[in-house]
Simulated assay, not measured.
Amino acid sequence: MAIKNSSILTREDYNQAQVTLGLTYADLAKEVGLPRQYLSEFRAGTRNLVPEHQRKLRNYFEDNGIVFEDSDLQKQGEAPTPATPPASRQAPEAPHPSLGAQIVTEYFFPIDNRLPGTVIESSMDFIETTDDKLIALGALKLGRNEGVFGIGEDEGFDEKTAEALQDAIMNMAAGYLVFMLTRGGWSSFTREQTDGNPVTLRDQLYQSFRPALEAAGLIEIAPDSLPGEFETNTEGEDA
């Protein structure tokens, strides 16, 4: 895929290259050695990367098959080698004769086409941030109370561990809800009760995870609503 570029790496070229290679911010940050937040903010237009960082990204993209239209080969009038489609790449060499190696097909989940690009991006950022939190929580060592043979309301865990477990479960649930809503499933989930008083389990879940859904851009406060009244973000519904 050829990408037109008049500088080291424009924001639009970065976006196209990342999408083409199917990379998450976390994957790309690890490969090029830049903070994930830098990449997210650069793509969102809230940060300008220094030339050195732009060069790192561009070199990585070119090493992985992305061809920019202003490459040295084209300036010299030579046709660049197009990026090899993932489906036709050669399988890597097996590390041992007894081990096979094959190309793995990558799958992507569908996204509701009624969602505007800004909501999709903020939702994906939320999921990645939640993943980072879960990784950090998962590294915590379990702490248990002394005595009572590990029996009690917190099943023997100390207060810090019990809070970490609750936080991890809430983050996993929030990530799942955002995933489902971006797919277009559970469309009725964000319809709050008119009186604001939860009467079903769905209503209680909505109230509990409303801040997470707001952070993901999936619901927003209606500008002309009274406090506590929300509406689903359906911008671009007719697109």
Rank of each mutant, 00 (worst) to 15 (best):
A2G: 04
A2R: 02
K4S: 07
N5T: 09
S6V: 02
S6Y: 03
I8F: 01
D13F: 01
N15A: 04
N15S: 05
Q16M: 03
A17F: 01
Q18Y: 02
V19H: 02
G22D: 06
A26S: 09
D27Q: 08
A29E: 03
A29P: 04
K30R: 10
V32D: 04
R36F: 07
R36S: 11
S40Q: 09
F42P: 03
A44R: 00
G45S: 00
T46D: 00
V50W: 10
P51Q: 12
Q54G: 08
K56Y: 12
K56A: 05
K56I: 11
R58A: 02
N59L: 12
Y60P: 05
F61M: 01
D63M: 11
N64M: 08
N64E: 10
G65I: 01
I66F: 01
F68H: 05
E69T: 01
S71F: 09
D72M: 07
Q74I: 13
G77V: 05
E78R: 03
P80G: 11
P80L: 11
P80M: 11
T81S: 08
T84I: 10
T84V: 14
P85D: 07
A87D: 05
P92D: 15
H96D: 14
H96N: 13
P97D: 03
S98D: 15
S98Y: 14
Q102V: 14
T105C: 05
E106A: 09
Y107P: 01
Y107W: 05
F108A: 05
P110A: 03
I111T: 10
N113R: 04
R114S: 06
P116K: 03
G117T: 04
M124S: 00
D125H: 02
F126A: 08
F126S: 06
I127A: 07
I127T: 07
D131V: 02
D131W: 03
D132H: 00
D132C: 00
D132L: 00
L137H: 00
A139H: 00
L140A: 00
K141C: 01
R144Q: 10
V148M: 04
G156N: 09
D158V: 09
E159G: 06
K160L: 07
A162S: 08
A164F: 04
Q166A: 15
Q166N: 13
Q166G: 13
D167I: 10
D167N: 09
A168P: 03
M170P: 08
A173M: 14
G175T: 15
Y176I: 11
M180E: 13
T182F: 06
R183L: 11
R183I: 07
G185C: 13
W186T: 13
W186F: 13
S187N: 13
S188G: 15
T190L: 08
R191F: 11
R191E: 12
D195Y: 08
T200L: 15
T200Q: 15
R202D: 12
L205Q: 12
F209G: 12
A212N: 13
L213S: 07
E214P: 09
E214R: 13
A215D: 14
G217T: 08
G217P: 03
L218W: 05
I221A: 14
P223V: 07
S225M: 04
L226H: 08
G228Q: 15
T234G: 03
E235K: 07
G236N: 04
D238R: 12
A239C: 09
